[in-house]
Amino acid sequence: MSCTEQNGALCMDAFNTSELAPSSEIAPVGCIPYEKDYEGYWRALRGAIEREEISDRGAVISDLIIDYNPGHYTAWEYRRKWSVQEGLVNEEIQYAAEQVVSNPKNYQVWHHHRRLVEILDKPVDALELTRNSLEEDAKNYHAWSYRQWIVKKFDLFSNEHEFVSKFIDADVRNNSAWNYRYFLIRETKFGPHSHFVEEPSLVQETSYAIRKSRLAPHNESPWNYIRALTRLARMPLVDVVGLVDALRDSNPQATIDNRFAAHLYADILAESDSRADKEAAAKLFQNLRDSDPCRRRYWDHKLSTIQKSISRS
């Protein structure tokens, strides 16, 4: 029941003037100058809502409103009620998919699709929809979040590793992709879906991240990922095979010029029981303080924490 091709005036003909709600109250602050058409559509839909009328003509009007303002969550809610009542959820989900393409950063559109998938209890086109959307904008928060939900709800993990790897290959700095990768590892290794697929071990995964970190060492994402994996494995950072070597590799003169690597190395040393290691960590934090003045106060905080630990040991 889409009206985009039709004339809005014809759609309005379905309503008598007496069925329109009165003009809306005017906001004294931030008043939007509405176009006459839009105002008419809203008066028609508001009238229908107030009469508790869920109808085809209301759905047509809701589409016109959404055309102007895809954030009109009341119109979206109306369409959900209408499509359920009329048994048109399968058709409505196509409409939702089209709207996702034109409004990829809109909460309501994605939510509409998600609710309809919930109602039908099958992941209609959702993987394709999120893939297409992420190919347009590889960091679209809604798309990644929706994909997590779909994959989890319908146990669709089997090709996801390959899926996310492509995004990391395309842009190793895509933090959304790294986040998704972590989600996959956590769910498949430790979640209720762990029986499902053969996943790389945490050790393999760590060496993957170390490899990726070498492509662009000043990329924060893989460094955060490595820390997270070790926490997931309940493994001290220092035991990560190859990690300390990798850090030392990039550290020929005992000071590391990369603040992410230096930070991680300093945190490893700070975990150690040895006083010498802790002092080395303090030295690194001192260097970070000098070389990264934007975060001076944060490095001061790290420095004072390690100094307290040294004076206790």
Binding site: A27, I32, W42
Partner: peptide, 25 residues
């Protein structure tokens, strides 16, 4: 924006009118 109209393209904020009010005041 107080006792006056804002620009037309803000129709996308028609469902955020209390927000407009809060942001401005």
């Amino acid at each position: 924006a107080v006792n006056g109209k804002i620009e037309k393209y803000f129709v996308g904020l028609d469902s955020s009118q209390p927000w407009l009010c809060y942001w401005i005041i």
